[in-house]
Design a protein around this nucleic acid. Sequence first.
DNA 1: ATTAGCACTCAATAAAAGAGAGTGCTAACA
DNA 2: TGTTAGCACTCTCTTTTATTGAGTGCTAAT
Lengths: 340, 340
Amino acid sequence: MMLDERKKNILESVIKDYVETAEPVGSRAVVKKHKLKISAATVRNEMADLEEMGYLEQPHTSAGRIPSESGFRYYVDCMMEKERLCNEEIDLLYTIIQDNIQEWDKVIHHIGNFLSGVTNYASFIVVPSVKSSDFKFLQVIPIEQGKALLILVTDIGIIMHRKIDIPESIVPEDLYIIGKLFNQAFQGKKLEQINRTDLQLIRDNLKKRRQVIDTALDTIDGLVGNYDEEQVIISGALNILNQPEFKDLDKLKRILTLLEEDVLLKNVIPEPEGHEVDITIGKENIAEDIKEMSVVIAGYKSFGEMGKIGVIGPVRMEYWKAAGSVESVRSIIEDLFKLR
Amino acid sequence: MMLDERKKNILESVIKDYVETAEPVGSRAVVKKHKLKISAATVRNEMADLEEMGYLEQPHTSAGRIPSESGFRYYVDCMMEKERLCNEEIDLLYTIIQDNIQEWDKVIHHIGNFLSGVTNYASFIVVPSVKSSDFKFLQVIPIEQGKALLILVTDIGIIMHRKIDIPESIVPEDLYIIGKLFNQAFQGKKLEQINRTDLQLIRDNLKKRRQVIDTALDTIDGLVGNYDEEQVIISGALNILNQPEFKDLDKLKRILTLLEEDVLLKNVIPEPEGHEVDITIGKENIAEDIKEMSVVIAGYKSFGEMGKIGVIGPVRMEYWKAAGSVESVRSIIEDLFKLR
DNA sequence: ATTAGCACTCAATAAAAGAGAGTGCTAACA
DNA sequence: TGTTAGCACTCTCTTTTATTGAGTGCTAAT
């Protein structure tokens, strides 16, 4: 439905005020604050209309209006201008990234922190599973009597390692040879395709080596299995402590628990639909647990897989800032992946 | 000061009741609940004495008594019997450890989770810095054109890695040789002792290799610097949401922020004094931020360095359970280090 | 030394009163 | 016909007052 200019103005005023103060907004306040050239009475009439249309609601008869979820939806769809990061913010983020570029995990965490910092909402980043990245390199390094370290590197630079037990009789040269075998056999394969049938070469090997090869294969299974699932990085969950809508301790507890546990959060994050920033408001969320939260989310491409990044906060959210920030950070991340 | 048996009984009753209910405890309640063979009036007299001695206090004249911090202190020092983990709990912990034994980081996190789980308070583990552990092994692995992965392993099995840039002209064999050089030069040295003066061998090398060696040394500096500081692992911070003393949102926010930020928490953790479990109650804590919390902490030895493990919770804490659990987990950790 | 009895205290809860923000409606106005 | 001033009305929020009840301290009896 199309609203006329005046109704739009009023809706926007109510939204901006309400988002800022978390209080119902009265007709007088709208006129004053936004210097409209009409009287409070007129605004009241328009507000009554907007309420009838479902874009505003009244907590009780003698209170001001607050935007309904449909009101926010209309605003987001038809009126909102995303407020992207300013240059200082972008520079700051790039600096942070550069300072930690060698340590991939850290970079992701810092990006999360940054996003929750600029928006004041909780941020999340879903890093896609690595199972379809390529095997790059494997080595088994002796570290002490009977123990060795198995190191596996993927093409996108993820390093997994685990300690394994080896027979006492194995000497470093054996391990070197084993590493070589693996590298030959698996060069360029997807991690998920690695399996023991590829290793007929086992037959040609000494029994003790064969034993290590078996252990190694088991370990690789375990490692890949571990990294098999998407990883969720959460930052700034405590930001919700600032939201008056969560002054109720029970509610607070539910949401905080959700936001602290990556597993829980993952179940609740909506799927981004297109290549745009996607917004789900309150009850639009399918997951029961966040029916009074809003999620702003964008997908990003990294080596063929889709990752997700976004923020989660109260329905009374600065959607313009959140959507703009998520959009900016998304494109910075995609840049980053291109560079690597 | 020594209390007679009856006063002790009453003090203990008040403490047990108050810890459970978080409400002031009246004379009648004490008699009833703990089936003492004396009347409420007598208890009142004794309570008045205990209050004079500073072990109990009254929120207001017509309320019951609550234990003062000195009261808790007396109880902890002179009466408490630590309630160590039961066999099922110990078995559970060992199972958890065994299931993750290959991944050191995970094990620590699981221990933290376990401790906060059994106590219902926030747990922390301070892992000592690794700078005085021994250099064990270094390798530089080519991963793509112009990039290599530097991997450094210490004697206690800590694995650090970072990507480095290398000149295009370097071939895998060069890297192999460089690794060998490092291994010869640094074998068995403490990480903190590694420095470039040990590497006169640089001179004997090609210029391009020398360049890599320099990069590698810089990287090692960075890595060791990173691991230089103690690491703090926090679990179960959200447990304080269950404590009625933190129903005040501001207080809650302060404490939660503290408990979520390892850096902040580290500044606040008291030093364990002896080899015993150490308890600091409320204002006994030096750090301003936790003057209304109590800390139960124990040191543990790991390869000559001291680590710390403990829980932090409200002054109204089940000290017997907390102290016992920390003690049990401490000895399990020390066992663990002996095994490795 | 212990205890029953009782007046007293004080927070917590409930009920009543008052204040204020904001509305909807009516009637006047451009 | 759309806009606006005026005003009675509504309903929450705050303040005030009353009520309740748990628990004490003191006194006097055992």
